[in-house]
């Protein structure tokens, strides 16, 4: 699992046909849906290997394609992506029903450093709908045959309101488990979900996971990232032990189309996961 997966095809621009198996509406606003996919050619599932944190392009012929983090764990049968309806590609994808075919390219990018994090405690911090690739991490780490490879797992995950939290059934299941410390927080609580009120960085400060022998994996909107770094620093996390996943507009996924760069690095092929130390060296252009 230490080597990131790479596309199984020769021509990186040709999408692989995938079939939509299941669509789950994730939030009250109904603009977040999880799409579960299988390869139309079953042999391709074997060849399609990835590590949590990598992303793929999803597309529809005649509409176009866009990049999305992989929300499923490598051992799960279906590939899953959670998409917010925002641009023209996601709007078209939100119209699809199970049984329809779409195109997938990938996997691309560098994953979370789970291989080097073996034997260490894992702290996961996320806000909003960027929780997707971190769901992949959690499901991957919670696998019974893998759980022993890592120490404590602490998760702080927040959304605007309880109805906007992703993967609610899984969150409930994880809350009941002894080997994962899950703290959910919302800007505004309501009756049917016992989540803490507060912003992710503040709640993280209260939860105060120890930095000792720990790695922090962070993904969220820019404003959350800005206020989370200082808290992790307060808690004693070295910039080498904090990893962030970034997003930028991209067209190719392989470092050629020229638009996802931050300074000299391309988010697509040098990221999307960067250590905070690396990110600090780059221009503040994201």
């Amino acid at each position: 699992m230490n080597t990131p997966g790479r596309p199984p095809l020769g021509n990186p621009y040709l999408p692989l046909p995938v079939r939509l198996e299941r669509v789950t509406v994730e939030n009250d606003a109904r603009d977040l849906k999880t799409f579960e996919l299988t390869f139309s050619d079953p042999g391709l599932r074997e060849k399609f290997t990835f590590v949590p944190g990598q992303f793929s392009f999803l597309g529809l012929a005649g509409v176009g394609e866009a990049p999305f983090g992989i929300a499923s764990a490598p051992h799960e049968a279906n590939l899953a992506f959670t998409l917010k309806k925002a641009g023209h590609v996601t709007t078209a994808l939100h119209e699809l029903s199970p049984g329809m075919e779409l195109g997938l390219r990938g996997p691309y990018g560098n994953p979370y450093p789970l291989h080097t994090a073996r034997g260490r405690n894992i702290v996961i911090v996320s806000g909003g709908f960027s929780f997707t690739t971190l769901r992949s991490v959690i499901v991957h780490l919670m696998r019974p045959d893998r759980r022993g490879d890592y120490g404590r797992i602490t998760v702080v995950y927040g959304a605007r309101s309880p109805g906007e939290l992703l993967y609610k059934d899984e969150l409930r299941a994880w809350e009941a488990l002894p080997d994962i410390d899950l703290t959910l927080c919302v800007d505004r609580a309501d009756g049917d979900w016992p989540a803490t009120e507060g912003l992710v960085p503040n709640v993280l400060r209260e939860v105060a996971p120890s930095a000792k022998n720990a790695v922090a994996l962070v993904c969220g909107p820019p404003v959350m990232l800005r206020f989370t770094h200082p808290v992790l620093e307060e808690l004693g996390f070295s910039p080498d032990d904090v990893y962030l996943s970034l997003e930028n507009r991209m067209k190719c996924g392989i470092g050629k189309c020229g638009r996802c760069n931050i300074g000299e690095v391309y988010v697509c092929k040098d990221g999307p996961v960067f250590s905070y130390r690396r990110l600090r060296e780059l221009p503040g252009e994201n």
Binding site: Y13, G59, A61, G62, V63, G64, E65, K251, C252, K256, C257, G258, R259
Partner: peptide, 15 residues
């Protein structure tokens, strides 16, 4: 630098 878009007409298209 390049863009990638889809064009489609009368049931046939191209990336």
């Amino acid at each position: 630098c390049f863009d990638v878009t889809d064009e489609e007409r009368h049931g046939r298209g191209a990336r």
